[in-house]
């Protein structure tokens, strides 16, 4: 089971920790939750320190989001999926800028969490529909320039929650939809803070031919 993916769940609600562990373990192939805890220590100590993915709740008991912990984890090269109650566009964009590979709201179900965790384990970003909405509605000055097609894919994915539907609507293949979403995330990674995960993400994008070296 050496190549089995592992994750650590940081959430202040035991029911959420148990539920996430169950969802991840029932996927195919299953993802093992090696540690879980109500604060971020479980991601730094013991088995949690070596887990492939950190699933991090932004509100750990306190009123302020733990963006500092997110930044430290990302700087240490950890692959983080933020899993939050709040469907707040600004917080989501802030987490992406800090280097989280995914921002997922708890209203979005098991399927997205499993896919996001699996993508994160490979160092790939995952863009769930709510995050696509946040990116499509981003009006900040420093946002990257997206092509018309990329915006279309974002909006359609946000509106339908179904990549098959997006592919059918736009007359493109499923893998093209995914490529567009990934390229958008690379564009965001290029404008965000420096982080090992981001460097890996950009390197992979070049390798996959999603972007050229000239785009950097």
């Amino acid at each position: 089971m050496a190549d089995e993916l592992s994750a650590v769940v940081v959430d202040d609600h035991p029911a959420v920790r148990a539920g996430v562990a169950y969802w991840l373990s029932s996927g195919t192939p299953p993802i093992r939750v090696v540690a879980s805890g109500e604060d971020v220590r479980s991601a730094w100590l013991g088995e949690g320190a070596d887990a492939d993915v950190v699933i991090l709740d932004l509100h750990l008991g306190g009123p302020t989001p733990v963006l500092g912990d997110l930044r430290r984890l990302v700087e240490a090269g950890r692959r983080v999926v933020v899993y939050s109650m709040r469907a707040d566009d600004d917080i989501a964009l802030q987490c992406l800028e800090l280097g989280a590979l995914c921002y997922l709201t708890k209203a979005e179900g098991a399927e997205h969490l499993v896919q996001a965790t699996r993508a994160a384990a490979e160092g790939r970003p995952y863009t769930p529909p709510s995050l696509a909405g946040a990116l499509a509605g981003d009006r900040s000055d420093h946002r990257p320039a997206l092509s018309a097609r990329e915006v279309e894919v974002l909006v359609e994915w946000f509106q339908s929650e179904s990549k098959e539907f997006v592919a059918q609507r736009l007359g493109i293949s499923l893998s093209t939809v995914n490529s567009h979403l990934e390229r958008i995330r690379v564009k965001y990674a290029l404008i965000g803070r420096e982080a090992p995960t981001k460097a890996a993400l950009v390197a992979r994008a070049i390798q996959d031919g999603l972007i050229g070296v000239d785009d950097l």
Binding site: A136, G137, R139, V155, F158, Q159, S160, E161, S162, F165
Partner: peptide, 17 residues
């Protein structure tokens, strides 16, 4: 049903799938 409301820089879009 999926209902979405998106407010971008120049548009307000209400969609239902």
């Amino acid at each position: 049903a999926r209902v979405s409301l998106l407010r971008t820089e120049g548009e307000v879009r209400v969609a239902v799938v």
